[in-house]
Design a protein around this nucleic acid. Structure first.
Lengths: 194, 194, 194, 194
DNA sequence: TCCTAAGCGAGACGGTACGTCTTGTCTTCCA
DNA sequence: TGGAAGACAAGACGTACCGTCTCGCTTAGGA
């Protein structure tokens, strides 16, 4: 039980790494399953014993990545949006390969939508909506999530011309503060207690 | 010369409409070139006499659409961002099918990027950057374009729960006004001259 | 030692019976080794510890059958060819399932050839060739073996429309007697001694 | 219409010849469709535009061969069985490759049965059954067909140790004459008229 | 009016990826 | 320690699609 499980894990690991390497090399769509198995040193048919699809493998890879992301945010409740943003962009720089696949890729739309929803929900859970705002809270939360991802994408597409700290400031001034000002109560509840 | 040109136009028209119909029916990726030609009543090989790719046909379809969009904006220089936004969302509602293909689709990332760039450039051409802003003007312009597209997408994904006028207000308050306030001079130059 | 031998015998027995059942169900070629092991309630890899091949298992099955056949002929030295033939066809009727696999099957050619050779050799051992015959004795013996098998096959393919006694007569008149008359001395040696 | 038909014929011709060559080289079963297309210089997928199966291609090849065979027999109504037999064996020697595939092969059982039936029917059409014979005419016809094929097989398996004329005599004495004597009227009707 | 050129329908073809199937090897687990 | 369980490599199978090509029909716009 244990040993064979470890072998399975290893096989999947090899497939995941091959997918990442090949996707960065020539784009997700252009990678065939044969490429992946050849690169991973795995039998072609074996691929289908683990994943029904190329997409499913990608989702598997990115899910692991999302878990990592969640942990990052769970650990650090930064006081200021700018500091929080700096943290985000530092993480992006560290994992730029995966972020590039995620944000530039053709077959990642579904995953991006998923991440965007999660992020928006997280945001809504932290900040309290302003009662008399003309902006519905879910619209505002969606805005924050989408705009943040767009900002990350711009940064990566332009080869990270600013430091994470600078990007954190932009993130704060362009996205968080205006949205918070117009759609949410000034003081976020949980961080206020810190 | 004239008649044969008209025939060519008609063939391309049929291909375009078949692509739109089939894409709405089962998604862009799932549509094969054989599907398109069958649906259009066109010989299979004839497709390649007009377009090298399925993507190229899509670009052709969407370019015509962008032209229409540009004309819309050229005609109306609305005084307030909210009114301008209302106009945009009214247009979206009218052409919701094409917008859905564009924003939800898997193979439209490249076109979306292109549109986003055009929009950002347009925005930069209209508004003058504030000299001492912490936000670089191209970042701000990119933010406006991306956030607008995300807002349209949210609206369509949620089946247009607000009126175009309400969306115009949200667009103004959430995107245009904050960005303008922090990154651009208060009065846009061209409209000031009107 | 004894116990494990018995266990091995039992495993092989199960495999043999599964092969026979499945072959009758959907034909020898269509039966895969996985089918056999599943049907026999045996581990897939275990098959290969007993037989290298599906064909080898079949040979094993049929060899046991041939042994039985030989014993039948050893016991009874019938005086007339017609009586001998009746005996043969009675046996065929009894074991018609196995004979059908053997004679109709796609993968049994090699075994059939083997049986044919044995039969021809047996025939040559019993009858003395006529010196001045235009027919070489091995040709004649091969003829007897092949024609007998073809006759059995015809009988089974047509659902045994005649009794074993009738078939025995046909066998005698159509195959044995003419061949004996032209290629062998009138009185077979061993039966003459009885 | 004509030109494309000719092209199709050429493609099938190439596939047929590749199948024959490869089958003689390593046996019918061991030949894969990829082998055939590679050897024929034909695209892999193209194979399936012509034949659903490897078996179907084989049947096609052998059917053409059977047509040739039929013509051979239609042309020449030889007076004596021995002469007729000599003709048959001369033809076998000429086409020994195809006969070997046919008679030794694993996937040719169905075709062989078909040929055997045709031959038997032909035989029945030529000779008139004897009314009081203990041998049913269809049994006798089947015997002739099967025994003839077995004789050819023996000859080829033993590398044709006798001349076609000798084999014709054997064929006549061992198969035709005895069967005719016991199951059919002495003078065949059609040849009697010649 | 004829006739040459172009658009087109039809479809054969080479090529390649897909997902399924089977075979035989090997390794781990269990009684 | 021998058999069960099953992961795996290898590779054939039949299907689907792509893009190229060639053929022949029809219709056009110029001679």
């Amino acid at each position: 039980m244990k040993k064979s499980d470890r072998r399975i894990q290893r096989t999947r690991q090899q497939l995941s790494q091959a997918l990442i390497a090949l996707t960065l090399e020539k784009g997700y769509e252009a990678v065939s399953i044969r490429d992946i198995t050849r690169d991973a040193g795995i039998g072609y048919a074996t691929f289908f014993r683990h994943y029904p699809d190329k997409d499913t493998l990608l989702i598997d890879v990115l899910n692991a990545f999302i878990q990592e992301l969640k942990q990052l945010f769970a650990q650090s409740a930064e006081p200021s949006p700018a500091a929080e943003g700096a943290l985000i962009f530092a993480h992006v720089r560290q994992q730029r390969d995966l972020y590039r696949i995620l944000l530039r890729g053709q077959g990642t739309q579904a995953i991006l939508n998923h991440i965007q929803e999660i992020t928006a929900r997280e945001f809504l859970a932290i900040y309290a909506p302003k009662p008399d705002s003309p902006i519905p809270p879910d619209v505002a939360a969606n805005h924050v999530a989408a705009a943040t991802m767009a900002l990350i994408k711009w940064w990566l597409d332009h080869d990270m011309p600013y430091t994470p700290a600078q990007m954190g400031l932009i993130y704060s001034e362009l996205i968080i503060r205006p949205t918070q000002a117009i759609a949410f109560t000034p003081l976020p509840q949980p961080t206020a207690l810190h």
